[in-house]
């Protein structure tokens, strides 16, 4: 990814030509006729430079594998296979719970069938919830999460795949390694034995954490710098971090600012998001991101009556793997 030099692309999967499911669960007066399918989006994006072929492969669920052979023969002659799978629109929304975040077996089987051919696989997912991807992630070369995009359907995602758009999305919800990890979220409270208590059979960490997301460029985060290391409760503070685009593409980067309070009269989450900002950073350029910290707003906690407290002591301000200590005094 991106697919810039690809002459033959096989587009496979039950979502590829579907328009209805791209609308999502509460489509109001949206109509499938208004939607551009993934296949049509790819066709208009790659039309001239690459040839596209299509096979449905299988349905969203069920056990019918009759379409696998067509999918195999289409994939066999392609340079890259884009597999379009995911959830029907009715699988999320109201009264639409599922016991597992994994896709139905038939869809996973389709990917495994194509994998046997040894072709590079781009897995394109349209769904209304985080998915369990531990079986698919190891056999795919790239995964694109498009969610349910509405009427624009396959247009923007085709531009992501072609490289016209440099993706900048980051997850708003954790993708667990498996459904059995639920509940799992970034701001859990602290464990009594952080190094222990792990699952014996699966990893204990998520497959994709909150705020995870790749781009076609790379960013380097320098160290955090605070305007003051010790502040009074009513005193504001500016923290900054320079971020450099070290890759060849211009991009948009979101910086997430977290705080942590390692010691407090109640046990607080490991970290808490307090601010985020997205900025465009051109290739080779450095942008400075700022966080104006207001101790009462950003460092305090509430108790079970809704009363807000700000305690004296040390706090950490965290961005990615960087952190800086701030002391709050009277």
């Amino acid at each position: 990814m991106p697919l810039t030099q690809t002459s033959k692309i096989a587009v496979i999967g039950p979502m590829a030509q579907n328009r209805e499911h791209l609308l999502g669960s509460w489509a109001a007066h949206g109509s499938p006729e208004d939607v551009t399918s993934i296949y049509d989006g790819l066709k208009s994006e790659f039309g001239v430079k690459s040839s596209l072929s299509y096979a449905k492969g299988c349905d969203f669920d069920g056990t019918d594998t009759i379409g696998f052979s067509e999918a195999r023969s289409v994939a066999k002659v392609a340079d890259v296979v884009v597999i379009c799978i995911g959830e029907k629109r009715g699988w999320s929304g109201e009264n639409a719970s599922r016991s597992t975040l994994a896709l139905p077996q038939i869809q996973e089987e389709l990917v495994r069938e194509i994998k046997k051919l040894g072709k590079p696989i781009v897995l394109l997912l349209s769904n209304g919830r985080p998915l369990e991807l531990n079986k698919l992630e190891p056999i795919c070369d790239a995964i694109v999460e498009m969610w349910q995009p509405g009427v624009v359907g396959g247009i923007p995602v085709a531009e992501v795949i072609s490289g016209k758009i440099n993706p900048s999305g980051k997850l708003s919800m954790t993708f667990p390694y498996s459904t059995g990890q639920i509940p799992i979220y970034y701001n859990m409270r602290q464990s009594a034995r952080p190094a222990k208590g792990k699952y014996k059979d699966i990893p204990t960490t998520a497959l994709y954490e909150f705020a995870y997301g790749l781009s076609y460029t790379s960013y380097q985060y320098a160290d955090l710098k605070a305007s003051n290391s010790s502040i009074k409760r009513t005193q504001k503070l500016t923290i900054e971090i320079p971020v450099t685009n070290t890759g060849a593409r211009d991009g948009d980067e979101t910086v997430h600012w977290y705080i942590s309070d390692p010691y407090c009269s109640i046990s607080r989450p490991i970290k808490e998001l307090k601010y985020f900002e997205k900025q465009q950073i051109k290739s080779g350029e450095t942008k400075i991101f700022h966080f104006e910290l207001d101790p009462m707003r950003d460092l305090s906690f509430v108790d079970g009556n809704g009363t807000q407290f700000l305690e004296k002591g040390d706090y950490y301000i965290i961005v990615k793997d960087k952190k800086i200590k701030i002391e709050v005094t009277d």
Binding site: L23, W26, A28, D34, R129, W147, V151, S172, T254, F276
Partner: peptide, 23 residues
């Protein structure tokens, strides 16, 4: 009133995906 959750006729991305824009 009506359930206009992610668009009326110009349906856009579901909210969970919108948040991933951080915009």
């Amino acid at each position: 009133a009506f359930d206009v959750i992610h668009g009326f006729r110009t349906v856009y991305q579901i909210s969970l995906g919108q948040a991933c824009s951080w915009n």
